[in-house]
Design a protein around this nucleic acid. Structure first.
Lengths: 234, 234, 234, 234
DNA sequence: TATGAATGAGAATTCATTCAT
DNA sequence: TATGAATGAATTCTCATTCAT
């Protein structure tokens, strides 16, 4: 099991192997239940080497969190075209988010489940990343109001709460989509977009938010999109 | 800080003391980091007694999860009057949920953070409880559609996703409300209700969902309600 | 090897067994080279029990040092009759000191070799004990001067240096006596007493200090004394 | 702090750098607590080079002990003019000894504290050196007796004990002088010389041994001598 | 009902030491 | 002459769990 034992490789490479193994073990077993022995074995190296490069279990865990947080933020950032209208940006962000988390479930487990469960030092990194995303979403909500030429009657705290709810719903859906076979990132994004933008009330009235044309959009980004399930234009 | 050392009390009482202590420790330290020593000390009994009554750490943890899950479901159930319209039922359920979690943060931490992070046996209990709630919410959505005499054009999976998103948002807001000083359960419920029912689109258009009259409602349930921040009738 | 495995004994007894074992191992191997495993085995208990009672290697070592230091000081104190003239007191103190160290070589090694070699926290305990003894000796020197009705022309620092030298010589002779077969505590005490009181110069002139009558003295204290080798009355 | 990193230097030089570093680390941390990593870093070389030149930790430690022992014996030997009377020789030896140990505290710590605390192989080297010095001192005592034209009534073992006590007192005073600010090597030597030669009894009677004239003596040896504190000529 | 005494099993971490270049 | 990469073997310490009373 674990990586093939290739001897004598440069430090940078070994470090990534170790982080790969650590993310996998931490994500599945949890921080405390993960043992350095298991991580080292999965990485195909001896324990002392793990300590030599990553210093301690805490520091290894932190390195995992940091790497995964940066990768996630980067994935979302790269998936959003800032010149589009706010709702389209939100859609793209959600799509990128669900895509990344579904492709990288262990990393997502580290961020979403493990990091938050083991005290300030670790949680802080995730909190910072989450804050970045919440701020981004908050801005999108404000932009959307401006684009609608409306005074949204929304005080600051209210907007914060909405952004928080949206991000929370996304996080939760990510786990659900991963656990529900046959659910694509695109479908999860569409569901949430509808929920967030149109609301249950409008959905009851048959007025969902309209996701972009899947085919055309896929061509734009080079992705193979399944069609969102609820898509009549409002 | 532990319970006052009273010797020789009936088993049922001792067990509750132990569970109280265990929930507190598990909620704060996490499952793995919690030690049976600390739990026994906080419960004011010797370790062998904990084992005599609760058998093992796993079994103790399971008992905690079960107790807290039942308490939460019961709190929500008791808070909802099933004869009201769907949106009012949802509102009452959210209110009851946020109230319970804010009053019982350690129990909530056990359910939301710890139980899900330590493998199937534990997660299963929470999943079952969550499923109960998701089913309830799903039913509410279907009811709402029926009440609106509409065919909502929503396939089953889509409704499941919406309920999932709603519950996820609620869970996330619970943590946020607990962590944000000055945020009441009622405000959290109002924010989420708006978000869920009206959606961002409608909120942009100045058409939020209308929460019930706080004063009258408070009289109904015996609570002192702060007024929801976004409340013009639609 | 190690103590006979007698199960289930009261804590206080087990603790002494552990300290006995620890003193022996620390004294022979040194602090760092001693392993908790070895100590536990020699004590006839499991390692966790050692930790349960003594908390850590450091704390165990400290407990050893403290116990041995107190035992040594007590032995010297009990061996000296304070109503005698200064030189007799010094003699009795030296005799008690060499007797104790020769009967308890591991304890002496802990104090003299190990404790001083492993940093402030440990050395401090020994330093305090040594200071107590140096103060006692200093007082004896001053008393001796007073008894001789002399102004000894000795400034404070000089007396301190003399006491220090005397104690140092004693410490060194203790190791030598232990390592040189056939050397009794009484002989060591006599040699040092001569050296200290008469000085090499007087010894050259055939004027040594006179130790007390061995037989009579032994009767006083219940000890079987070998006769000191250099004993003509001055 | 380590040596400046100069690449490619002759083996002999590198070896001395390593020994310098090792003496410092061993002297401060102790044998077991010293790590080869730290020593290599302080020496400014890689660990494998240390092994290439010095073979092992044990062998490195032995090399340190040997070097420091030789340096100390050589310093004492060079400080004593063998043509002087015995007491003057003793005085010069003590002065040289205290001077060397105070200038080289890490080396002295290695010899006095570390080497004796870590088993026969190491202690043996120091014991041999010490023996050399004890023999020298023993000879001085015998010489002194001969010079006094006296039969000192001192059997061999007694003389050995006296020499042992004298050397032990010197070792102890060296640590004391190093730890007591403002105490010079010369003062320490004077104190001990008085103690050893005159003895407490004579000191009480106001008849100390007379140290040589500091100024004249300093001219002899090229040292700036502080005056000894107790110096009336006998 | 209740507990003081005790341990097997495993956790993180460190170190002296070597290999391949 | 010199080193980056790598490890086997301990070491300290903790924990869930049980026994005997």
């Amino acid at each position: 099991m674990g990586a093939v034992k290739t001897k004598r490789m440069p430090r940078a490479v070994r470090e990534q192997q170790m982080l790969d193994a650590a993310v996998r073990i931490f994500g599945r077993r949890g921080y405390m239940a993960a043992s350095m022995d298991e991580i080292a074995e999965l990485a195909g190296v001896s324990k002392p080497l793990v300590y030599l490069y990553l210093n301690s279990k805490e520091s290894l865990f932190t390195a995992c969190i940091r790497r995964e947080a940066e990768a996630l933020v980067e994935a979302v950032r790269a998936g959003v075209r800032r010149e589009l209208p706010a709702d389209r940006q939100l859609w793209e962000g959600l799509d990128a988010f669900f895509t990344h988390t579904s492709r990288n479930p262990d990393g997502w487990a580290v961020l979403h489940l493990q990091a938050r469960t083991h005290g300030e030092p670790f949680a802080a990194v995730v909190t910072a990343m989450r804050e970045e995303i919440v701020v981004f979403v908050t801005q999108l909500i404000v932009d959307a109001a401006r684009e609608a030429h409306r005074d949204p009657h929304l005080p600051g705290r209210e907007v914060a709460g909405l952004a928080e709810a949206l991000v929370g719903a996304a996080e939760s859906l990510a786990a659900w989509a991963n656990a529900t076979p046959g659910t694509t990132a695109r479908q999860a994004a569409a569901t949430l977009m509808n929920f967030a933008w149109a609301g249950l009330g409008d959905l009851m009235d048959g007025r969902p938010w309209s996701p972009p044309e899947p085919d055309q959009d896929a061509q734009d980004r080079g992705q193979t999109g399944g069609s969102a399930e609820t898509s009549p234009t409002r």
